[in-house]
Amino acid sequence: MPKTSGVSTATTKASPAFGSELRRWRTLRRVSQLELANRAGTTQRHLSFMEQGRSHPGRAIVLRLAESLRLTLRERNALLLTAGYAPAYEETRYDAPAFAPVREAMERVIEGHLPYPALVLRRPGRVVAANRAFSVFLEGCAPHLLEPPIDLLRVMLHPEGIAPRIDNLAQWGRHVIDNLRLLAVQSPDRRLDALVQELAGYVPEAPADQADQAYLGFAVPMRLRLPEGELRLMTALTSFATAVDVTVAESVLESFLPADAESAEILAARDRLAAERDEPRLLAGL
């Protein structure tokens, strides 16, 4: 979506959908009218009238309600639209000139993570940028999975991706899907539900007697078979808590950390070889 030309406070025709949307979000968040009213600095009576369509909300109260309900920036924009107001938060293209400082900062972080894999994701799994160590996940993948934009979740769990080389696919894959289901509960979306259903179909059930065998005691590592040996990796995610742009808010930095010394050495040796070949530190065309 192209960057908007600026944030406007202009009011369009009010929509009766606002009340039902507000009630839907309040129900999803399991918040009473009184609790939400207190959070947003209004009265339960006023909130009730808004949900019934008897009172048209001002723009400021819509934003306070959206924040109190912990909606994403995209969801806040959508709620504003149902109330008849223009979106408050811009969505800047990743390759837009105005986004260059943010993009360069993200890329410096993942480049500095070498020799370990790291990437910038647009949730839930679109790869925006990655360092060269990320190529360990692309080896042997079917060409259709590598067509831009690459979807990390499909690369990981699809039978034609690296799934056949993940020794603990049942345990690790279910952990990934459970986290995705949690995101779908927090931010309902039919496309996300469809993705969860698709990915769940790729991952086998873990035998009951093996349910705990893949745990380190504090994390669920991926156990990836390579010619050099088994690579055991843990995942860390970094998000942008104070974002006021939809693109930034929906971006995360995902890094893969070695879970043992052997894995660290495998990645270090691969990166030394890549450096000798003068391969770029960042992958292009993702």
Rank of each mutant, 00 (worst) to 15 (best):
D212G: 14
L80M: 08
R74G: 03
Q44G: 07
N168Q: 09
R76W: 04
L114H: 10
S239D: 13
A219S: 15
A14K: 03
S255P: 00
G173K: 05
P143A: 07
A14N: 01
A268M: 05
F218I: 10
D245W: 00
A88M: 09
G217R: 05
S8I: 10
L152G: 05
S32F: 09
N131D: 02
T235D: 11
A130S: 14
L63N: 05
L231K: 13
N179P: 00
P221L: 06
A96G: 02
A268Y: 02
M50F: 05
A78G: 04
E67K: 05
V246L: 00
T42L: 01
T242M: 15
G201K: 14
A194E: 14
N168E: 03
L237T: 04
S187T: 08
S20W: 05
L145Y: 06
I166L: 08
V246H: 04
A208K: 11
A133H: 04
V246P: 03
A214Y: 00
P101C: 09
P280D: 08
T9D: 06
D212Y: 14
F49C: 11
T9A: 13
P115K: 13
V196D: 11
H144E: 05
R76Y: 12
S15E: 06
K13H: 10
L199V: 08
D167Q: 15
L180E: 03
T72P: 05
S8E: 07
N77I: 03
D189S: 01
L34A: 08
E279Q: 15
V120M: 10
M156T: 04
H56R: 06
L286E: 01
P207T: 12
V102C: 01
L153W: 15
T9K: 12
E205L: 13
W25G: 01
L138E: 12
D260H: 05
P117M: 14
L195F: 14
L34C: 02
E265I: 10
T4N: 06
R174H: 10
Y215W: 12
R272V: 07
S8A: 08
L73E: 04
A206C: 15
K13Q: 09
G201Q: 12
T247Q: 11
L69C: 12
P227I: 13
V248I: 09
T82Q: 00
R123F: 07
Y89L: 07
H175I: 03
I177G: 02
D245V: 04
Y85W: 08
L36I: 12
R165A: 13
D212I: 10
A142W: 07
R122C: 09
G41R: 05
L65N: 04
P57Q: 07
V128T: 14
I150P: 01
I110H: 03
A259I: 03
L36R: 04
Y202L: 11
W172A: 15
I166A: 07
I61A: 03
V136D: 00
R59N: 03
A243I: 13
G140F: 13
L199Q: 06
E228H: 06
A100V: 13
S5G: 13
D212N: 15
L80E: 02
T43Q: 10
P57D: 07
A241D: 07
P97H: 07
P148C: 12
E250V: 00
E276H: 05
Y116W: 14
L28Y: 11
A249L: 00
L36H: 06
D193E: 15
I110M: 04
S255R: 01
